[in-house]
Amino acid sequence: MRRLARTYVTLLRVGFAAALAYRAEMVVWMLTTTMPLVSLALWSAVAAEAPVGRFGPSDFVAYFLAALVVRQLTSSWLVWQMNQDIKQGSLSQRLLRPVHPLIHYSAENLAALPLRAAIAVPVAIVALVTTGGGHFARDPTVVGVAVASLLGAWLINFLTMAILGSLAFFTESSTSAFEIWFATSMLLSGYLVPLEIFPAGVRAATDVLPFRYTLGFPVEAITGRTTAGHALAQLGVQWVWVVVLGGIAIAAWRAGVRRFAAFGG
């Protein structure tokens, strides 16, 4: 166990150095993260004519700034990496190491967090200043749920990526599966539109699906748009998804590696 912890720290450090290596990429990356700002501009303009549901312009500002931060702290890009590793056979090297590849991947993923936080923290400060803090959670239970939900959101993202990435073991066109997932999640997670203003039927569906728990739910908790009881119940649903997806991810990975071994990469 201690050895694993020590290895993990080293993996994190190497991953961090790798994340720093390309500065041009970092610029692109920062630009990508500004998407919620565009949504913000759009929906503020829409709300300026007349409020949308409970949302006035400043509610939209708080919501999308929180979305930007959550997105920063919880995203994963494992699918691309797995795809490349599987197609080019570099997975063999990972399989040879005495660390489970999924653990290794997770370290690489988390190692980029400090850089992402460097982007997220200023945004959070801007959000607090511009909206006067009135749009954010005060209830200690909700604040606690918000923190826990961030970890859950990252896990759901990471695990679904691992599942979709494992598809690359079986099919040539695994990235298109990811694109479908990505497109669906953009809409149903609350990234482009707060789920609250969706028609009731769509909203009921999103409560059950995993998408909302990767973004919409943490954002709602952070912006205090939920009650303590409801937040706790939702947190329960989120972690059920974490467990379910974790099980599927491990099974998919095992089946994939068996196939990888059989075909020799």
């Binding site: 450090r13 961090f16 150095a17 720093l20 290596a21 500065r23």
Partner: peptide
Amino acid sequence: PGLRAAVASL
């Protein structure tokens, strides 16, 4: 090699 050099090269 090393972390410091990585930051510096930015």
